[in-house]
Design a protein around this nucleic acid. Sequence first.
DNA 1: ATGCCTGCAAAATATTTGCATGTAA
DNA 2: TTACATGCAAATATTTTGCAGGCAT
Lengths: 145, 145
Amino acid sequence: MRSTNTKISSAPKGGFLAKLRAAGLRPTRQRLALGKLLFAPGDRHVTAEGLHGEATRAGAKLSLATVYNTLHQFTSAGLLRQVIVDGEKTYFDTNMGDHHHFYVEDQALLMDIPGDTVRIDGLPKAPAGTEIERVEVVVRLKSRN
Amino acid sequence: MRSTNTKISSAPKGGFLAKLRAAGLRPTRQRLALGKLLFAPGDRHVTAEGLHGEATRAGAKLSLATVYNTLHQFTSAGLLRQVIVDGEKTYFDTNMGDHHHFYVEDQALLMDIPGDTVRIDGLPKAPAGTEIERVEVVVRLKSRN
DNA sequence: ATGCCTGCAAAATATTTGCATGTAA
DNA sequence: TTACATGCAAATATTTTGCAGGCAT
């Protein structure tokens, strides 16, 4: 590495650094850069590739593989949730609350639906030997031409 | 090709051949072999790789790419539906009726939930400029150890 | 100082496409 | 016969892993 004078411990993102440590993840330059992008605004939906692009444009130097690894680490640590809607790309959601999703297929655009307004009735009980982990609702949309 | 004496038009699968023609798809050896596997029993869930394995074991000679292409063609023709639950693999479902899914994550096992018993209330209306195409419910299960 | 953990290059896996070739009309 | 659609090899896209080396302790 050329020049690593960057101070890391200068209290950058409020609780985020604490969250990282609690999860046993070291606050590296890469983690902090991605964390800043992910947790700064409100809720976000990102793909690995999209986030890598953002980070790169913001001047961070990291590989796409690191973005994948970091997203999965954040997910294991309970900071992100994985959303499966597309088959091609995996989305990660910063909204950890109970909620569902709108997905506009022709724009590959993902939006939250607040969870507490939605009620699902009439589900059969889980098959023998299994238990329910989560119920996910995806409302697929197409944009009106 | 070595020996192509196989008669194709000997009325093999009841309505399936007619369906193919209606969709503008020629009843080739490969299509018929896959169609037979897909539409013979009751409802099925397959992956491209799984179906390719079955077909090969049954003695058909075709490449995995052809299986992918055929599955997509059947989907466009309205004979199959694509189900997205896993991110890694794409599943195809022969059940075209309105229904939902159980998905056992640790076994990559997909099961139908009859659609007409499930009721979903409290969904917000579709965002401006879009309309609802389909509402999908996936109940994620884990097997009890 | 040192050993665990990180980050990335390279590999693995999944899917799509371009074109030589077979097939239905 | 002939044009068009098909099926597969090769290319592409996405994600995971093994290990050299950086970092917190």
